[in-house]
Amino acid sequence: MVFDGFFTQEKTMRTLEEKYINLQNIIRNYDRLAIAFSGGVDSTFLLKVARDVLLDNVVAITARSVSFPEREHKESEDFCKVSGIKQIVVDVDQMSIEGFKNNPPDRCYLCKKVIFETIIESAKQLGIDVVAEGSNADDVCDYRPGMRAIAELKVKSPLKEADLSKDEIRTLSKELGLPTWSKPSFACLATRFVYGQEITEEKIKMAGKAEELLFDLGFTQARCRVHENMARIEIMQDEFEKILQNDIRTRIAKEIKALGFSYVALDLQGYRTGSMNETLNITG
Score class of each variant (00 low, 15 high):
V131S: 07
P105Y: 05
C80L: 00
I115F: 01
L110D: 07
E121N: 07
C111V: 14
I119V: 14
S122C: 06
E133I: 00
V92F: 04
D129A: 14
I115Y: 10
C80G: 01
C108K: 11
V130K: 14
A123N: 02
E75D: 14
I128H: 04
G134V: 07
K74T: 13
G127I: 08
D93G: 04
K124P: 02
G127A: 03
Q94I: 15
C111P: 14
P104H: 00
E121I: 01
G99V: 08
V114M: 13
Y109R: 03
V89L: 05
S96G: 01
V89N: 03
N103V: 09
C111D: 10
K86F: 08
E98G: 08
D129V: 06
P104I: 10
G127C: 11
E133A: 02
V90A: 00
F100H: 06
E133W: 02
D78S: 09
V89Q: 03
I128S: 03
A137G: 11
S122H: 10
I119R: 04
E121P: 05
P105C: 06
Y109L: 12
I97P: 02
F79K: 10
V89R: 11
V89E: 02
D106R: 15
I120T: 08
E75I: 15
V114F: 07
M95Y: 07
